[in-house]
Write a protein that binds this DNA or RNA. Structure first.
Lengths: 226, 226
DNA sequence: CGAATGCTTCGGTTAACGTCGAACTATGCG
DNA sequence: CGCATAGTTCGACGTTAACCGAAGCATTCG
């Protein structure tokens, strides 16, 4: 009776609590094994196995075998974007499952979203770079200006490998907590990777929160002033 | 076991075929009565009633009573954006429920998305206005330049009423078929309304497709050249 | 006031699906 | 080659929730 793509199919796929937990866990961008995902979702491995098969079939996940392990990751950035959108809706109706604790504040300040920096600090990095004309915008497209390339290279990120890939260098990602744009794409991932290499920040084990060191925090505000 | 908003709850809500059909039907932006939605979804009114109650409870819909009718609409633009994102995923995996027919091509060319123009022509309108400096962009924010205000007013849209409202004048909306930005927000709605008033275009009854007349098509390309 | 229409609530049936224990296959290690 | 670990398949159970018929409110109209 209706036209258009079958939205119910994919929504049902995401709608199961176990599968939603798996997807949320994968929002960090890190690939996880089947048993790790089972633990994340709070189900036995055999249940997890069927869920993962469905997610693969629905093309929400990609998988690669490595020895006797299977590593799962989100299929592509669109999946991450859709999940962020759903989080935005869910957050709006105040239905955070766990009561908001210290972890939650941490998450709002800085967290990892599909391997790039999100939260207040993610937004700050983006706006700071844009306001200094390091990033140009044109509709949905983003890119680095010449000054931006200099800045990024000076920051320690090698652009050669990034621009060679067919994935876009810069991408917009809408933050579900801030409701503002932050930087995604291969550059967004590289920037976060470099901050980790500089020991500004480390990932919280078992959540998406990012923990900045005191020195890292200072260096960050110096590098990306408001 | 997991942190963050309860994404499964809202996804389950969208995941039922009947409810998904209702939401899709409401993507036009038009408010529909309970029985109309029942027909759209292909269920009896009593089943539709329970579904609608759940969608209201989940804050995906808003409702207003009018006489012995109840009119339902999407709660806010974020809901529409999320559904578009899901459509993008579903379309990607080639799972369009109905075989692609002439209707489908029509839909890709021009359709209504939450009361504004979407599809190829929606994208064209946006890019054309942006390239002529009628619209400025700054991160997630959009707005009309002085030249843009002149143009829009000349087009027959009164800006006074729009800017007074607290809803944003310009908004980005990501097209699921084109994967490009088109113009949403109150201005996007007003532009489409004006095109309908000028009889450039009329809505296809029973689908989201927009049917441009020959003259309307010509006038459109003149007003929004590539 | 009835009669008609739009929507809701109740009860009971049915189907789908998530869940786990147990048995099975595959890979790696000593 | 055994043994351990990672992942899958099978079967049975239980819960959930969608569905409709029928009866119940609410609103409008003659």
């Amino acid at each position: 009776m209706r036209e258009g793509p079958d939205i119910a199919r994919v929504a049902t796929l995401i709608g199961d609590p176990a599968r939603a937990n798996m997807l949320t866990a994968l929002m960090t961008g890190k690939a996880l094994t089947a048993s790790e995902l089972a633990a994340e979702a709070g189900v036995t491995v055999q249940t997890a196995s069927t869920h993962l098969a469905k997610l693969l079939d629905g093309e929400l996940l990609q998988m690669r075998k490595q020895g006797r392990h299977k590593y799962f990751a989100l299929a592509h950035a669109d999946v991450a974007a859709t999940i962020e959108a759903l989080m935005g809706l869910a957050a709006g109706q105040g239905a955070t499952r766990t009561r908001t604790g210290p972890k939650d504040a941490q998450m709002r300040q800085a967290r990892v979203c599909y391997n790039h920096l999100a939260g207040q600090m993610g937004v700050q990095m983006f706006t700071s770079m844009r306001d200094r004309n390091f990033i140009w915008e044109r509709g949905e497209d983003l890119g680095l200006t010449p000054q931006g390339e200099t800045f990024v290279t000076g920051f320690g990120v090698a652009l050669d490998g990034l621009t060679a890939a067919r994935a876009p260098l810069c991408r917009r990602c809408l933050d579900w907590s801030e409701r503002r744009t932050h930087l995604a794409g291969s550059l967004g991932r590289a920037m976060l990777a470099q901050m980790e290499a500089l020991a500004w920040v480390r990932r919280d084990k078992g959540s998406r929160a990012l923990l900045f060191s005191q020195a890292g925090q200072r260096a960050f505000t110096a590098a990306f002033p408001n």
